[in-house]
Design a protein around this nucleic acid. Sequence first.
DNA 1: GTCTATAATTTGATAGAC
DNA 2: GTCTATCAAATTATAGAC
Lengths: 182, 182
Amino acid sequence: MPSSFAGKAAEILDAAELRMRRGGYDAVSFRDLAQDVGIKSASVHYHFPQKSDLGRAVVERYVERVMTALGPPDNAAETPAMRLDRLSEVYRTAAIQPGLICLCCVLGAQSLELPPPVSAAIGRYFERLLGWVARALEGAPAGAPSAAQAVAGLQGAMILAIATGRRELFEETREPLLRTLR
Amino acid sequence: MPSSFAGKAAEILDAAELRMRRGGYDAVSFRDLAQDVGIKSASVHYHFPQKSDLGRAVVERYVERVMTALGPPDNAAETPAMRLDRLSEVYRTAAIQPGLICLCCVLGAQSLELPPPVSAAIGRYFERLLGWVARALEGAPAGAPSAAQAVAGLQGAMILAIATGRRELFEETREPLLRTLR
DNA sequence: GTCTATAATTTGATAGAC
DNA sequence: GTCTATCAAATTATAGAC
């Protein structure tokens, strides 16, 4: 297992992810996290010595969760439309919960000033996601979106929905994207 | 004039915008700004008493600049394709400069934890932008993207480009978006 | 408008006891 | 693993002199 956390460490990651997905990297402090999970801030440092260790762990765990939810991109029993539908579903559950956005959307936007270990993890996430979508779209009809187009559309849709407070905007973007595949 | 700043105030806004467009709202401190423009941090507070005043002013000035660059959405001498091209051009100049992303993309992503005056300004920006694009696309062919789709695609494309360090990804998203209009 | 001085709080991080 | 205690630095913000 590449990165499996349990017990308090996992609780800390949960709390950190929640806060980061609302306000970005700087919205997380050791003190807040400590209070969230019922220990002292020094104990949080025991699990994650540096903040960048924490940030990287949050991202990597998130990536694994998303990739697991996506499943294989080349299941012969599925059409490209079905695969892209699953992708948008993953993002919908991230965006539709009032007050939550995709972790890598927030962190990706501010990745220029993130500690290198964290921004590198974000970069790997997007490359992996683009790879999955590219495979998922193999054999798609002519008018189909590119992998970059599909990912960008969904990421941007989340920002729109969050920033305007209008969740319908996510649907308004997601739906036409899927329609081009049918 | 709704919001015109000159002299040191404008310099402060320049410096703040640059920093925010790299790392978000928390990447800006009064001290750094003071050093950027060659005064002391207390003097920055003279121009912008609270940080939220500064944040809001940065956003509102940015919005005016973008809307001016976009021009009228209903110039009869233009086709929808030409208008959307101008929109994407505005974003390209924001994304292509190495290490700069659209201000409202970064702030929009973290708007859930922004001071209300700032997040409200961000919300107004997107509503205004969506309005512009909706008008710009009036009379567009059947396969054309919706306003939300166009804006989301460009916002997401910037995140992809920044987070992966691969600027081509912006082009790979922008190009097919425009092609649907020809 | 800009300065010095300073306050109050928060933050990431460490040392060492239990 | 968790605690107490503590640190140095940074942050937003204010008071008052020039």
